[in-house]
């Protein structure tokens, strides 16, 4: 287009109008149009405050932290990393955290699917039920921890009932250990998983399952062959989000966990490095490692997601 316009400009006045008037006009307009077509125009300036915000409050601290992790007091640039991995007390926190967060995220996603599946349609009391399922978001970790201690603790209702009925001879330990933290993560993570899965499910055209039914598919086959494949990319995304939430668990690991032993998660290690030993490079190292582990898990899940069908979930036109 532009190439065909430029020759008359170079070759002098060929049209009715003089070349001087004609040539600068199209060129200037063309450049602005070309930029606009790529989404570059003056409205882009509206992004500036947000970009500045991200730069100052995220990129800079992040870069500073990464830089800090390479400046330990002793042992060269990788000294802090070597120290972390050579000390089992530190190193094992990765495994401890994964052992908590992976099953919890998996359970949250898995439990959300059937509940959301049943709640797709319209029915009476749907709003109430959704509210009840989502309320834990508003509670906060501390309140949840307190509730767990009251309910599942050694003298809590759950154990008192077990003892009263005679199902157990001594209180079942469900708090201040792995399970206490696990329950806490599940309770706080479930609403996110549920809301996400519900919205993904609602996006799947209900006539697809009806079509499958007329083709002879029973409910399990309809779910297995139609709904699940269309939902799977959404489940992968949901898993990533709930996993990240669970991986950075901190308060409940202390409140309802066993912070010196079985639930000494990686964020506790970072906290200790920073505010107990004042070893900032080590704390930064642990923070960087947290991010790396999360990235690895997310990359694995998204890699699997890339193999799935991720297009439209509508049944066709209309």
């Amino acid at each position: 287009m532009r190439a065909t316009e430029s020759p008359p400009r170079a070759g002098g006045p060929t049209g009715e109008r003089p070349a001087e008037r004609r040539s600068p006009g199209p060129a200037r307009v063309a450049l602005r149009h070309r930029l606009a077509e790529r989404g570059i125009d003056r409205q882009l300036l509206l992004l500036a405050p947000a970009a500045l915000f991200v730069l100052v409050l995220f990129v800079y601290p992040f870069g500073y932290g990464v830089g800090l992790s390479f400046q330990p007091a002793e042992g060269g640039p990788f000294g802090a990393y070597q120290e972390f991995f050579s000390d089992p007390y530190q190193r094992d926190t990765i495994w401890t955290t994964l052992k908590l967060s992976l099953p919890a995220a998996l359970l949250n996603v898995a439990a959300s699917v059937p509940i959301a599946y049943r709640m797709r349609g319209r029915f009476r009391g749907k709003r109430l039920l959704t509210t009840v399922l989502v309320v834990p978001i508003t509670l906060g970790t501390v309140l949840t921890a307190q509730g767990l201690l009251n309910f599942l603790g050694p003298t809590g209702w759950f154990n008192r009932i077990l003892l009263g009925v005679g199902l157990a001879d001594e209180p079942v330990r469900l708090t201040n250990n792995y399970w206490g933290v696990f329950f806490s993560i599940v309770i706080t993570g479930f609403p996110f998983a549920f809301l996400l899965v519900l919205s993904y499910l609602s996006g799947i055209d209900p006539s697809l399952e009806r079509a499958a039914a007329t083709l002879g598919a029973g409910w399990w086959q309809r779910f297995r062959r139609i709904t699940l494949p269309l939902l799977a990319p959404g489940l992968a995304t949901t898993f990533c989000l709930t996993f990240v939430l669970a991986f950075s668990v901190f308060p409940s690991a202390i409140l309802v966990g066993d912070p010196a032993g079985t639930t000494r998660v990686i964020s506790i290690a970072a906290y200790e490095a920073a505010y107990v030993r004042y070893d900032y490079p080590m704390a930064a190292t642990i923070a960087v490692l947290m991010g790396l582990v999360e990235l690895l898990v997310i990359a694995a899940v998204l890699g699997w997601r890339a193999l799935l069908y991720t297009g439209s979930t509508a049944g066709g036109k209309g």
């Binding site: 006539s207 499958a212 007329t214 297009g311």
Partner: peptide
């Protein structure tokens, strides 16, 4: 009899083709 056992074919208004 449930839909999957009737053995009728149905063409939907929006076609309802399985997109995946």
């Amino acid at each position: 009899v449930p839909a999957e056992k009737r053995g009728f074919g149905m063409v939907f208004q929006n076609y309802a083709l399985f997109p995946h």
